[in-house]
Design a protein around this nucleic acid. Structure first.
Lengths: 237, 237
DNA sequence: GGAGTGTTTCGGCGCGGGCCGAATTGTGTT
DNA sequence: AACACAATTCGGCCCGCGCCGAAACACTCC
């Protein structure tokens, strides 16, 4: 028998700008050391340490120590889910500087979202795959249905998609893209696409943010793959 | 172009015990007047009013005035989603009194969850329907697949389920039950089941909480429908 | 119009907690 | 052993805000 659960506890943990910034920095599934998270949140190491301690006690993050660093990571997919659900409710943050605008446009173009790709590029990919019948139109937060596991685009990326997947995690899932306001490809396949793109050097993670950087080879490769002009792919300058 | 959204804003709104209590009270989709929400949260009307004002400015709730009452309601399904996602992360609240225990057991047995049914009874229903092949086993947060639209249990409830549904809302969805730790039936069908049960007087909403009260007729009707002994259905005393 | 009730606004109190600098612990490096 | 660096703990400051009582509105009903 379980009494009522208090929603306010995890919400209060997330509802603090510094902590929220750290959690969002971890949203792509990476493990980051305390110092880096302090910088990401714009607070002193002392403050960050206290916040991280609370987050860990509250079960939102997990620590793993390695040498003199302590790496923090989101403690599970449920945490990422909650953060995404809250992002949908979040107002737009004002752009304060040119630097912010740059960072914003880079993020808007391509960024990692937990373990898959988000942003303009992700939407382009999703659109092409949907239009060409690889899977049914995605719905935010829902499991998607695979229609053509042998779609050439997927094959070109070296992905052979099993028709039936044994794991509990859905092969295809719609994840709301909060820059584009439409669902993009997530789930197993979404993760596989991201790893394929990075492993062939088309996209590179940036050290400071979740933005993914499109390399020149990536630009040509993707233009060919998506059958569009290279100029259609913004390069965040 | 959209800059980064600040997750901490909605989270901070939810991350306050009084406000969280009011939001949870609204989780079943009802509209409640300010005074009732004040009681639900255990604060004075003055305090509740201030909280409700903040929630509304923050876009989590909507007001509609009717006479000298002001009815507040969650402003959308996204809000309910976020609350559910946070509930998964929430720790168990300690039971402080017998009164709490009573309320807890009533809630654990049957309660409304936004617009569908949750709790032990919901799990029983979901189990029977799954075992008998009405739909595939549910996964939390995912769209489910209908297998037998003409299942006798659904027919007995007067539900004729369209095989293809035109709306964007999925017919079947798995929703994590935080008392039972398994998914229960949500989506269009979940909502239809709840209305069917209440409209034939088997379940009655309680004025003060989300608990649903099983009537004697409901007890017999459901025992027959689920093909189990009436004693298997707890009556919250 | 006047009584009664639901709701909001205002003023003021007090606690919680976010913040930092300095000191401390623990772990690699030379 | 001595040093350097990451991370945490401690002490103290202070702002934000949650809370309530009293008063002001707003609306209904008589």
């Amino acid at each position: 028998m379980r009494a009522d659960a208090d929603v306010s506890v995890p919400a209060a943990l997330i509802g603090e700008p510094a902590r929220a910034a750290m959690l969002v920095a971890l949203l792509d599934g990476r493990s980051l050391p305390a110092g880096e998270l302090a910088r990401a949140a714009g607070v002193s190491p002392a403050t960050a340490s206290e916040h991280l301690s609370r987050l860990t006690v509250g079960g939102l993050t997990t620590v793993s120590r390695s040498g003199r660093h302590r790496y923090y990571t989101l403690s599970g997919r449920e945490v990422a889910r909650a953060l995404e659900a809250l992002q949908v409710l979040a107002p737009v943050r004002a752009v304060r500087s040119l630097r912010d605008a740059r960072a914003g446009s880079a993020l808007a173009f391509a960024r990692s979202c937990y373990d898959h790709l988000a942003g303009e590029l992700a939407i382009k990919l999703t659109d092409v795959l949907t239009r060409e019948g690889a899977f049914a139109p995605l719905v935010t937060g829902e499991k998607g249905t695979l229609l053509n596991a042998a779609h050439p685009l997927l094959a070109d990326l070296g992905l052979n998609v099993p028709v039936h997947n044994p794991s509990r995690r859905p092969m295809i899932r719609g994840c709301l893209d909060w820059t584009e306001r439409q669902p993009h490809l997530a789930g197993h396949l979404g993760a596989a696409v991201l790893t394929a793109l990075t492993s062939r050097g088309w996209l590179q993670p940036t050290p400071t943010s979740r933005a993914m950087c499109l390399t020149p080879e990536g630009r040509h490769g993707l233009a060919h793959l998506l059958d569009i002009d290279t100029t259609a792919l913004h390069l965040p300058s």
